[in-house]
């Protein structure tokens, strides 16, 4: 869906970062996120994808470089206010029901009455296909269901930028496909700017408007690959020659050109 509103809402400009006492993880990382586009970040493990997402979220402070939100520099607290980060692992609170887990987002803001919060959370659970498990505890849910609850909790924070760290990595491949379809569906309605990390190349190409490739060695540039398949996308897409061609290109970018 390129063409409409291609403004860069979020820019990372020459970001450098390293954990104290370790060699640098990210060096001069530069990329831009377009408004209401779905961006997928791929790269070898250990390349610093999670670290980069936490930097974007304002959870970490860059050593050098600036982040721009709608054109103006954004420090940690501004990034914290304008984005939401969903970590990779299971972060549901096991002592809270599904409804209470989702309501946490509103509870932390503390602006609404209990009934209002409940109503909003319930409405979202409904549209996410979770109405029936509102009173269940997380340990009673399947992996896919848990992931949906985490999405609901994350998306209830009303911010323009969603930062998703490998949301499907813990799921079996079938559930994963269902969840990709589900996420496409949810996102199509929601249409916020997304930056999502994944390991899965098919997943990246199915979901993304733009795939960003984080290099394995700090210092190399982040490459971007535009994915222009029409939306809504079907799962049959992965068998089409145009898809295979993109996939070849992306694998080439990830692994380098020297084939065996």
């Amino acid at each position: 869906m390129s063409g409409e509103g291609d403004a860069n809402v979020f820019v990372a400009d020459n970001i450098c970062f390293g954990f104290p006492g370790k060699r640098s993880v990210l060096d001069q990382v530069t990329f831009a996120l377009k408004e209401r586009h779905f961006h997928v970040l791929v790269g070898p493990s250990g390349a610093g994808k999670s670290t980069l997402l936490k930097l974007c979220a304002g959870l970490l402070n860059a050593k050098e470089g600036t982040f721009l939100l709608n054109g103006s520099a954004a420090d940690c607290s501004q990034r914290l206010m304008q984005s939401v980060y969903m970590p990779q692992s299971d972060t549901l609170l096991p002592w809270r029901t599904v409804l209470d887990n989702v309501m946490l987002t509103l509870e932390l803001q503390g602006k609404q009455s209990a009934e209002e919060m409940q109503e909003r959370a319930m409405a979202l659970l409904d549209s996410f296909g979770l109405r029936d498990c509102a009173d269940a505890y997380p340990d009673q849910l399947s992996g896919g269901m848990k992931q949906r609850v985490m999405f609901a909790r994350t998306m209830l924070k009303n911010v323009p930028l969603l930062l998703l760290d490998e949301p499907f990595s813990a799921l079996d491949s079938l559930t994963r496909k269902q969840m990709q379809r589900w996420l496409l569906d949810v996102w199509q309605r929601d249409r916020r700017t997304v930056l999502m990390v994944t390991h899965d190349i098919d997943e990246a190409l199915l979901l993304a408007d733009t795939v960003l490739v984080l290099p394995s060695e700090p210092g190399e540039t982040v490459q971007a690959l535009e994915v222009t398949f029409a939306r809504p996308r079907s799962f049959e897409l992965i068998y089409e020659p145009a898809f295979v061609e993109r996939k070849r290109l992306l694998e080439h970018m990830l692994l380098g050109g020297d084939n065996l």
């Binding site: 959870l59 972060t91 609170l93 932390l108």
Partner: peptide, 26 residues
């Protein structure tokens, strides 16, 4: 307390006190 849960709370806008009351203490 898992670091990821703490990051989740911070990203959702939790204050220090809220993190203690709603995550660390439970």
């Amino acid at each position: 307390v898992s670091p990821e849960r703490r990051e989740m709370m911070i990203s959702l806008g939790a204050s220090r006190l809220q993190i203690f009351r709603l995550l660390e203490w439970p």
